[in-house]
Nucleic acid binder design. Structure first.
Lengths: 258, 258
DNA sequence: TTTTCCGCTTTGTCCGACAAACGGTCTCAC
DNA sequence: GTGAGACCGTTTGTCGGACAAAGCGGAAAA
């Protein structure tokens, strides 16, 4: 009977105790009354304050831990943590993989995000970041011929460029895609031998463009660098419209768990 | 003594039982052996299978729930859920707020992400999404003068544009920023009366450009639309380099919790 | 056939308990 | 006096058992 009438009201959600525990602590953190580094207190203390059972407190703590708001230092005290992205990014990467996003989507998004990041880097890079980029460059020049190292250093390069933009929103926005995108360059370098040198040259040009504050040149070489990746991907015999395999998700996850 | 020697080994992390429970179930989901919609089983069943206590199983379940991998249907059975972003995006928004990102960062990132999204929309929008955009437009034309509605419909408009790009990576990448960015347009419309009509015109032009597959025009009007926002922000007397207030985080969180 | 009621299942919460790991203190040998 | 080691209380991770409330399904009643 009632299913023939349009529902006027939403279902009422009664929050459970462990959710209220989590929300109470979260409110303290979001409002700033608890600051990163502060300790939350022992489980027993929380039991006293909230007047609920320890199991309930513990479930609430799990929620906060997963949300990246608190952190347990090596099985010991609970601290409010300075917001860490890694855990969140890897969770998003996992969601992307589960949705079977394609490499084309990944590539199109990376093009937008990485070019955006290098634009920001041209505008805001300071000496410190540029030094880090140069250090990265000298390492990658040593690593030609070693696909595993190449891919790792390349991933770090792009993270550094994003960091140079001094835009934490952008830095975060690109991370889930990067986590899935760059590991595959290992596979490419393995199968396309000229991939390594081309990558090293592109990085060199990008760093130079950032140092020269040359927006157009930076854009150009970042774009070229990524298009190279796509070419290599195809030449390595991969289908660009195929979904990102779930293998990569596992890889991204296991790395971030460390 | 040992702190004078460079540490060779990382601390060994012994995974606790509830983490292993969570990982075991996660592995089933990521590998595809458990598909969205499948049910996980009752807590009692998991207790039997894993041979651990129910409290332990429950903590593991909390972890998965927060990770957006499983979902409890109204206090009842556990299902593998089709990956939902909302929860994850709001968590990232929260992290951004806690880092005190500025409106300028938000604006710069939104410029890159939204222009990127509209580029994708020009390339990939289909009739269905365009119809949805038109419906959104007719609603916003009715809403001029109502800041709350305007801001809501504007937020939906941008989500639709991103969806039209048929790029789930980009769609997801923009969401955390959007969650923080667009709600503030309510404040702007409230204080800058001509904001409403300008927003409506920009949307109209963007939709037309998408329909005409005119890349440059779409870019132009999206950029103009966002720059308008920034102008309004300043004219409303707000400081663009000030951190996003924590109020907005709460707003974004409470919306996504529904 | 429809409504109502009853009992079973499952979740949310509680209580009490214990081993292992950790932190701090105290003692003892040097 | 100082350092090493033993000792002890605290805290976490896990366990077993228990109960009320809510949801589900089938039987009984209208």
């Amino acid at each position: 009977m009632s299913d023939t009438i349009a529902d006027r009201f939403d279902r009422i959600r009664v929050p459970s105790a462990y959710e209220m525990v989590a929300e109470a602590i979260e409110a303290e953190i979001v409002s700033g009354r608890l600051r990163p580094g502060d300790e939350i207190g022992t489980e027993a203390a929380l039991v006293r304050q909230f007047g609920v059972n320890r199991s309930t407190v513990r479930e609430g703590i799990r929620v906060l831990e997963q949300g990246g708001l608190v952190r347990r230092e090596a099985g010991r005290k609970l601290y409010v943590c300075e917001p860490r992205y890694d855990a969140l990014s890897s969770r998003i990467s996992r969601a992307l993989v589960l949705q079977d996003v394609t490499f084309r989507e990944l590539f199109d998004a990376a093009l937008i995000l990485e070019v955006g990041a290098v634009e920001g880097a041209v505008a805001h890079a300071d000496a410190e970041v540029i030094a880090a980029l140069e250090a990265n460059q000298s390492r990658i020049e040593q690593a030609i011929g070693n696909p595993v190292l190449l891919s790792e250093i390349d991933t770090e390069f792009h993270a550094l460029v994003a960091h140079a933009s001094r835009n934490r929103v952008l830095e975060l926005a690109r991370e889930p895609a990067a986590l899935l995108f760059f590991p595959s360059s290992e596979m490419i370098c393995r199968r396309v031998p000229e991939g390594g040198p081309r990558m090293v040259e592109a990085h060199r040009r990008i760093i130079d463009a950032i140092k020269a504050r040359d927006l157009e040149l930076a854009r150009l070489w970042m774009r070229r660098h990524l298009v190279d990746w796509r070419k290599g991907f195809v030449r390595a015999g991969r289908e660009i419209d195929a979904p990102v395999e779930r293998i990569f998700a596992r890889y991204a996850l296991s790395r971030s768990a460390l």
